[in-house]
């Protein structure tokens, strides 16, 4: 009988967390923005969240592009189709790996840091003391971080794909000897702006919203102790990774399914 009780309790807790998360987001982004004060905060967060994630994104992108080219070549060369290597690398990156891997790396690099930072601000009463100074922490702390995450991740995903394609070129053309002209021209002929690039960007905007939202909510809702914060950080990474992979399936089915 206990497990039924637990199931009920967990379900209620899930839904109430979603409710609290929605309230938080609503309070943060619906508030009338004060551009003069908000913009510098936003820029600072874009630096902390986006710019500081650049290295891991670029390095990973390069390696993933190189691995894709290596793997793709061994398959394609059997059919004499190695000229299509550029197409294969670029489509894999733009449609799937760019948005997905960027979101996963982002959750691990920036998302966990966001959760820990906000959780610690809560534990050390910084959020309460903002409130007591009549400054809304949702606007001052949550909103700039949310917008910075939503803004940064799609750009990071585009950089990831671009660097990946360069990595594919390095391995495919420079190392394995695929013809440079066909590598680029077949890629250009087959990649469509709307079907591939735009859909990839849409995916990564969706992932950006979900991952950033989970990260800031987990911090904001954390139990204000060191144990609570460490749990919240883990939850951020686990929940946002699962959300990204699940949503990717749904979005892919919608975009490329029929």
């Amino acid at each position: 009988m206990d497990w039924i009780q637990n199931l009920g309790k967990n379900t209620i807790e899930r839904f109430s967390a979603i409710g609290r998360a929605s309230f938080m987001l609503f309070g943060a982004i619906v508030a009338k923005p004060n551009l003069a004060k908000g913009f510098p905060l936003f820029v600072k967060q874009v630096y902390v969240i986006g710019v500081l994630s650049l290295v891991i994104i670029l390095v990973s992108g390069l390696f993933i592009g190189m691995v894709l080219a290596l793997q793709g070549y061994t398959v394609l060369v059997d059919y004499g189709a190695e000229d299509s290597l550029g197409q294969m690398v670029s489509l894999s990156l733009l449609r799937e790996l760019g948005p997905v891997v960027t979101a996963l790396l982002f959750a691990g690099r920036a998302g966990s840091a966001l959760t820990a930072e906000i959780g610690l601000m809560k534990a050390t009463e910084q959020l309460t003391s903002l409130e007591m100074m009549a400054v809304d922490p949702l606007r001052r702390v949550i909103a700039p971080r949310f917008w910075a995450g939503v803004f940064s991740m799609p750009i990071l995903a585009m950089l990831f794909s671009s660097v990946g394609i360069i990595g594919g070129h390095l391995v495919g053309v420079e190392w394995l000897g695929v013809d440079q002209g066909s590598f680029w021209s077949i890629m250009q002929a087959s990649v469509q702006f709307e079907g591939d690039i735009l859909n990839g960007i849409i995916k990564s905007i969706v992932f950006a919203i979900v991952v950033t939202w989970i990260a800031i909510f987990r911090g904001y809702d954390a139990i204000p102790t060191s144990e609570g914060i460490s749990r919240a950080t883990t939850q951020t990474v686990v929940q946002s990774s699962l959300a990204v992979l699940g949503l990717d399936f749904v979005l892919t089915a919608l975009m490329f399914g029929s």
Partner: peptide
């Protein structure tokens, strides 16, 4: 609250 102020036990800087 703009007219009141609170010194927190922890400081909360």
């Amino acid at each position: 609250r703009e007219k009141m102020s609170m010194l927190f036990q922890s400081g909360a800087l």
